[in-house]
Design a protein around this nucleic acid. Structure first.
Lengths: 104, 104
DNA sequence: TCGACTCATAAGTCTGTGCTTATGTGTTAG
DNA sequence: CTAACACATAAGCACAGACTTATGAGTCGA
């Protein structure tokens, strides 16, 4: 997916909130509506957009649609941001350092 | 700056191209227009937006305005993305193996 | 089988945004 | 001083996107 699309998708606060909710685990479209002041079609449309961007994957089970975060979808964003990581002397500046952090 | 604003700002391909141009070093608004098929006001507006989001800083010198990347502006984005880095253990492990191979 | 249920799609509305042209403000060169 | 220059701002237009209500498609329980 293009960087433009991913940024557009994530520019919506509702969609980012959905992702945050899904980061706690899989959920159905109806489960997700809890806590959101939006209609069912709105939620369905948001999920379709997230799915189209590859940030979320769907698992159908009867009449239920289970959604979950698709980590691979974030790769382009991470890669893009990496180009500006060179500007952060204090922060991690390459993957090896990141991995050393994770080893601890 | 809010995450929503930063994502909105970066969702525009022209603005991301401006940032990429500025990552090579400081430039004036007129310098930046080179290679872009946009009018002077359009460039000015984009730069104002980037500045408003804290992604770019401005240095006035006479009638010239020099712009450059402001690394701190990317911090919220990096922080947000970091919340989803936890979903990459498998991918990172694979990369770890790859790096170990490369080290030998 | 029938009705409730889960989700998706269609169509219309409204707002936001990126573009344009026109103009304003300040600066420098001749 | 004046004209050219660099940039910002104003106003208007066109398109994209997020929402709504209405409806369709498929699934399950009684």
């Amino acid at each position: 997916m293009s960087e433009t699309e991913i940024f557009k998708v994530l520019a919506d606060p509702t969609r980012r909130a959905i992702l945050e909710r899904l980061s706690a685990g899989e959920a159905t479209a109806t489960d997700l509506r809890e806590g959101f002041a939006i209609t069912q079609p709105a939620m369905s449309q948001h999920l379709a957009v997230l799915r189209g961007a590859g940030l979320v994957s769907e698992r159908r089970e009867g009449r239920f649609a289970h959604y979950r975060v698709d980590p691979d979808g974030f790769a382009p964003l991470h890669q893009w941001l990496g180009r500006y990581r060179a500007f952060w002397p204090d922060r991690i500046d390459n993957l090896k350092d990141l991995l050393r952090e994770m080893d601890q």
